[in-house]
Amino acid sequence: MSQLPARRPRFRLRKWFAATGWRHVIGIVFAVFCAFPLVYVLSSSLNPNGTLLGSNTLFSKVDFSNYVNLLFNLPQQPFVAWFLNTLVIGLVTGASTVFLGALAAYAFSRMRFAGRRVGLLTLLLVQMFPQLLAVVAIFLLLNAISNIFPAIGLNTQIGLILVYLGGALGVNTYLMYGFFNTVPASLDEAAKIDGAGHARTFFTIILPLVGPILAVVGLLSFISSTSEYVVASVVLTDPTRQTLAVGLYSFISQATSANWTLFSAGAVMAAIPPMALFLYLQKYVISGLTAGAVK
């Protein structure tokens, strides 16, 4: 009996590359492209020279003096206070956005009232205009509020949180509205038959079922509020109340004293909270982003 000729390895390699191999190549290229800036910033943060030109060779010097200076040796630039301010503002903004957005989305999804469709469209259209266009109006409004209620006016973290809430509720409400529509209305009807009101139905039945979209909205709100610079730089003028985005800019704002490696060390530490929160909510984020678009 004659044996069949063995397939050539080159043929099998071509077949694999034509089927799925090219996807792996593209994925590796994009992974390297995305990871290189992160690796370069990490390498710069470990270089004590203070300039980016001295950090062209990756990890040529490994020194943690930049991190020590950030935490202990810069009283005029309180990095720890900026870090704590950012955490407080981000967490409060994220939690408030989730709670208020969920209430609004539940009302639009389950209740029928005059102006419901117009209200949804208005929320969506208003978000088409960036918050940057309203910086002057925000400053004048908070400055006027400071004369009456100083606790929520200019140069207060509560005032900045209120500004962030006003800019985030629209798009997040619309996003959660699409997810709420995927929850069967029969659950609400069964709860109503058992004597439950809207509040009890919302907190005990609906909220546990929409956990993925709550995690997505909370994560996006946290990231946007902790990385925002323009509004925070206008509202917060006291260095001890500023956020990381505003405070770290002081390291590179002056051309004669720009310390890019110190700025890189601060950027690496500033990336820890969003990364930790993303890893914690990852399983909810994946399901929330996919299910929220299905109606």
Score class of each variant (00 low, 15 high):
V268I: 13
I161S: 01
Y280F: 15
R23D: 03
V183W: 07
L207E: 09
N69G: 02
V268R: 01
Q77G: 03
M128S: 07
W22Q: 10
A104I: 09
I26D: 07
R23G: 15
W82Q: 00
L121P: 00
V285C: 07
I28E: 09
K283V: 03
L175I: 14
A168L: 15
I28H: 13
L281Q: 08
T51R: 06
K61L: 08
A196Y: 09
Q77E: 08
L244F: 02
A168T: 13
L244E: 03
F59T: 04
Y229A: 08
F83H: 00
D238A: 08
L123W: 04
M128C: 12
S225C: 11
G167E: 03
S44I: 04
D63H: 05
N259C: 04
R10T: 12
L281F: 14
L162W: 05
E189L: 11
T20K: 15
Q77C: 03
L207I: 15
L125A: 14
L132F: 13
T173H: 04
S253Q: 13
Q254M: 07
S233C: 04
F59N: 05
L248G: 00
T240N: 10
Y177S: 11
A168M: 13
A35R: 09
A31W: 01
R241Q: 13
I158V: 15
I158A: 15
G197S: 02
V210D: 09
A293Q: 12
S65F: 00
L165D: 10
S253C: 03
P9I: 06
N47L: 08
P9F: 04
R23N: 11
P75D: 06
Q282C: 03
I286D: 13
L262A: 01
R117F: 13
Q242T: 08
L262R: 01
R12S: 10
G153H: 04
G90H: 00
M111C: 10
F202Q: 08
S253R: 11
N73S: 06
N69I: 00
A81C: 02
L214M: 15
N143R: 10
G266M: 00
V135P: 09
A270W: 01
L100C: 09
L236P: 09
P274F: 06
V29L: 15
I213R: 10
I148M: 03
I89P: 00
T256Y: 07
P37M: 05
I252A: 07
G166R: 07
V41Y: 01
G218P: 04
I28T: 15
L141A: 15
P130E: 09
A196N: 05
C34Q: 11
Y284P: 05
N69E: 01
A95W: 02
G218M: 04
V285T: 06
V135C: 05
T57M: 09
M269S: 05
Y249L: 12
G115E: 12
A104V: 08
